[in-house]
Amino acid sequence: MNKSDVVIEVRGVHKWYGELHVLHGLDLDVHRGEVVCLIGTSGSGKSTLLRTINHLETIQEGRITVNGRTVGYREEGGKPVAAREDVIAAARAGIGMVFQNFNLFWHMTLLQNVIEAPIQVLGLNAAEARDRGRELLKRVGLADKADVYPRKLSGGQQQRGAIARALAMRPDVMLFDEPTSALDPETIGEVLTVMEELAADGMTMIVASHEMGFVRRAAHRVVMMENGVIVEDLPAARVDESTGRIRDFIQKFH
């Protein structure tokens, strides 16, 4: 993979929450079609990293680009400066995000959830959005749940719906923040299957998850974070050969 294939580029990123220094000059490149699995102990900064990529969190130093464009800020004198709201929103529209708690809009049916942003943000007309929405719901196995409200769905169904909602924006990259850790064990598999299909389709993905099954089946790389930096970065096929932090981590948790 050459340099032009880099879709997400994180360079020397520092993030403070007030006094708390959470990201310590972090670097990460993600290439087109690559599936990167992010692991690390609680508090190591995985969520923070994902949230800075689509600018749900600001950064104080460094740069993050998606498809060569900064998200949510301009650079002035080497420092990130907040961009205008519509610029931020437009950049975010191309970055899908899936949350641990699904965060489906609970006052809307599943189909309404999926068509809301395409209509509001991309300006699709309702009929077109609905057709695409139904298509996506079928793809995640929820064709028969289009008119159901989220609270009447299981966690696994909600999470698959949330993935469909993110995909409806036709994102270039997808960020997953512990997508299965709020799920019952029985429903984890159905969500992972959807994610694996997405990976097989060539979606660029960063997935914060400790699901080693997913790592083995779908990930290309495993990146281990500790105290706000990356401490080990291995091809997924070689995680078992790790002699460093990844090995310690896997032994401890599995």
């Binding site: 689509n54 749900l56 709201e85 519509d86 929103a89 437009a90 950049a91 975010r92 529209a93 191309g94 970055i95 899908g96 995000m97 949350f99 708690n101 965060n103 489906l104 809009f105 609970w106 006052h107 809301e116 942003a117 509001q120 943000v121 949330a162 909602r165 993110a166 924006m169």
Partner: peptide, 30 residues
């Protein structure tokens, strides 16, 4: 209104006014 709802709207590229009108206010109505 749950912060997560607002974050989901933001992550989808919705602007503040749209988020207020389409997500926050309808949920606040309950």
């Amino acid at each position: 209104v749950d912060r997560g709802q607002v974050e989901a709207a933001k992550a989808l590229g919705m602007k503040r006014i749209a988020t207020l009108r389409r997500i926050i206010l309808p949920q606040a109505m309950r």
